[in-house]
Amino acid sequence: MNWFTKAITSTIGRKIVVAFTGLFLCLFLVVHLLGNLQLLANDGGKSFNLYAKFMTTSPIIQTISIGNFVFILLHIIQSTILTIKNRQARPVGYAIVENRSTWASRNMGFLGSFILLFLVGHLANFWWKMKFGEMPIIGIDGMQVKDLYFVVSEAFKDPLIVGLYVFSMVFIGLHLSHGFQSAFQTFGLHHVKYTPLIQFIGWVFCIVVPLGYAIIPVVMYLRAL
């Protein structure tokens, strides 16, 4: 093995990969949320559909999105390997464990797995249809555009889907509550002056971002009533 593969297969190296990809995915969450918020624009889906078209056709976005998938994959692979290794590090467990750590920090694997399930459903529902599936077409300013807004608003008429979506955001929030700050710790960014700030941002982030996502289906559901 050369120095690089040695580095990224060491425990700390794997963690750094998880942290780096995790932080990138945080960024993705923000961008994605900003786009999604256009669902609430109350313009019959015009701005949202234009945004969706741009996102699916722009070459730059296409490249970034490949990177995004690669990062998700890396995030999953490295953390799965780490989880397996971590389990192996304690072959015989304790009879009694009283924890002095947060629940989320101990259950990132479980939270992450659930988020993966959600992601699969989410992609199948919207992204797959948009990219490869049959979609109703709508004309905007003389352009023929796939009407993703219609698909989304139809989906969010189902209280089950809305509930599931909101529920999933709680999981993402919990995952972020540990993951965001933890990533900075893994990079070694610890400082008496700045760590409290990072922690504060982490808390804000893990509440505001999932909340922003959760508001959308709820508002759309209520509007459609």
Binding site: T11, R14, S101, T102, S182
Partner: peptide, 15 residues
């Protein structure tokens, strides 16, 4: 050496 000994990775739980 720490890795070779079979210790797990840090997941920053703070325990």
């Amino acid at each position: 050496q720490m890795d070779a000994e079979g210790f797990g990775a840090c997941t920053n739980t703070g325990a």
